[in-house]
Design a protein around this nucleic acid. Structure first.
Lengths: 116, 116
DNA sequence: CTAGACTGATCCGGGGCCGAAACGGATCTG
DNA sequence: CAGATCCGTTTCGGCCCCGGATCAGTCTAG
């Protein structure tokens, strides 16, 4: 079974969610930052700067800066790879888990109110 | 009938869509710009700067700048209100319609591939 | 006709993000 | 060992966005 979602529903869903996140005076993540956050939490480790840069098709400095911002917000954290100390492993945090769970609840809530 | 969407599905959906839009080297709209675009296309006119500022809970200069950017991309256009020349009416464009239709197709496509 | 209210745009100082290039540290290789 | 290679970070100049204050244009009430 796959999820049935018509184009008009997709736009309405997106509008309600984006509008709500804009209205809330929260962290205000950029698309790249949000993409990194979701990738780290939804795909299996390890996550490195180079790997994320490749996955997002973006330069390495962009990833470094995004990790700075997300780390500042305590949504993500860095950890040296002790096996190969050149690498940096990007890891989850409690606050990040809560943030994404809240976001998921927002989406499901909006979807539930959507006319089919 | 309402749309059933579990939290884990919501996050997976969002990740695939955001990741795809980040990968594509497209216009790269901010959340506010995207919220404005969706609001103008999905809710009934007229749309004014002040009205959008209130809807998004954002300052007027932010709306003006976003309209500059979206107008530059030809996704939206401004038009003086001839009845009350103080107002600026924000209107749709062909390119904007195509852009949102493509985006909606992307979302529905991703949703269709989602495991239920 | 004029004083005031109201519109959207502009000015301003400040801050964030951009990618190419250069950097220092860690690791591999000959 | 020394040189090459790989990693993430930093530097650099440039661009965009931020909101409070202010502006010019428009409308309206008295």
């Amino acid at each position: 079974m796959t999820l049935e979602l018509k184009p008009v529903q997709a736009l309405a869903l997106w509008q309600d969610v984006v509008l709500e996140t804009v209205r809330r005076e929260g962290p205000d993540l950029s698309s790249r930052q949000f993409a990194i956050l979701l990738t780290v939490y939804l795909t299996s480790p390890p996550h490195t700067v180079r790997g994320l840069a490749g996955t997002l098709n973006v330069s390495k400095p962009a990833i470094t800066r995004a990790l700075d911002a997300l780390g500042q917000l305590d949504l993500l954290k860095r950890k040296r790879d002790e096996a190969d100390r050149r690498n940096v492993l990007v890891q989850r945090t409690v606050k990040g888990s809560v943030f994404l769970r809240d976001f998921a609840d927002l989406v499901t809530s909006v979807a539930g109110r959507l006319e089919a």
